[in-house]
C-alpha cells in the first residue's frame, strides 16, 4: 500500500519510506534511514498504523515459527565426533604437512609436467554427461545465416581451459606437488623409473 501525500513536508512523503516501514517495524534500520523513518512515522498516523500491523504480523510469524525437534546431548556429541573422524580423512590439501625432502621437488615438477601432458592429450570422460546447450532460435538479425530450426554447430575448442572444466565437473583441483607428496617410497621409485625411461 503506497500513499502519496503532502501532509508531512518536513518528514517526506509516505511513498518515500513505504519500502522501509516493515524493516523499521522489525528494528532493522539504523543511521539516517532510521532517523528519517522514525520522524515520518511519528508524524503520519497512516504509516504508524501500518507499522503496528507489520509488528503484529512479525510477532505472529515468530510465535508460529516451526519448532525444531529437540535432540539430546548424545546426538550432538555423536555428530561432532563423526565430523571430526571424517575431517581426519578429508584433510584439506593446503594443510597436509610435507614429509618429503626438497630433493623430491624436481621429481615432482617433472611428474606434474607428465601428468599435465597426459591430461591434455587424453580424452576426458566425465562421470556425468556434460550438459549441452539447448538449440536457440536464431534472432531475426541472424536469420540470413542460419535457419531457426537448425541447432547451432558445436565447434570443439582445442584450447579449452582445464580449470574451467574442473569447476564444471565439480572435481576438486589437485596440486600435483601435493599429490606427489602423498606417494609411497615404492611408488616414487616406480615413477622415477618411468620418468627415466621417458627421458
Amino acid at each position: 500500500m503506497t500513499r502519496v501525500t503532502e501532509l508531512h513536508p518536513d518528514t517526506g512523503r509516505c511513498e518515500d519510506v513505504a519500502e522501509l516501514l516493515a524493516v523499521w517495524a522489525d528494528e532493522g534500520l539504523d543511521g539516517e534511514q532510521d532517523r528519517r523513518v522514525t520522524a515520518h512515522v511519528r508524524a503520519c498516523p497512516a504509516c504508524a498504523a501500518q507499522v503496528e500491523a507489520d509488528r503484529k504480523l512479525l510477532n505472529g510469524l515468530r510465535e508460529a515459527a516451526p519448532v525444531v525437534p529437540e535432540q539430546d546431548e548424545r546426538f550432538w556429541d555423536d555428530l561432532a565426533t563423526s565430523l571430526e573422524a571424517q575431517a581426519a580423512v578429508v584433510v584439506p590439501m593446503a594443510r597436509r604437512p610435507s614429509r618429503r625432502a626438497p630433493v623430491f621437488a624436481g621429481l615432482a615438477v617433472a611428474a606434474a609436467a607428465v601428468l599435465a601432458l597426459f591430461a591434455l592429450r587424453a580424452p576426458i570422460e566425465p562421470s556425468m554427461p556434460r550438459p549441452q546447450p539447448a538449440a536457440q532460435p536464431v534472432m531475426v538479425a541472424d536469420a540470413g545465416a542460419t535457419r531457426a530450426e537448425d541447432p547451432p554447430v558445436q565447434v570443439a575448442q582445442p584450447t579449452e581451459d582445464p580449470t574451467e572444466l574442473i569447476e564444471e565437473l565439480g572435481v576438486e583441483e589437485i596440486d600435483p606437488l601435493e599429490a606427489i607428496d602423498e606417494l609411497g617410497d615404492d611408488e616414487l621409485e616406480a615413477l622415477s623409473r618411468v620418468l627415466g625411461e621417458g627421458a
Binding site: M1, E19, L20, A22, V23, D26, G28, A53, D54, L57
Partner: peptide, 16 residues
Amino acid sequence: AKANFHHAIKRLRDVL
C-alpha cells in the same frame, strides 16, 4: 535483503 523483506511482509499481509 531489506527490499526482499519488505515485499515478503507485504505479500504475507495480503495473503493472510
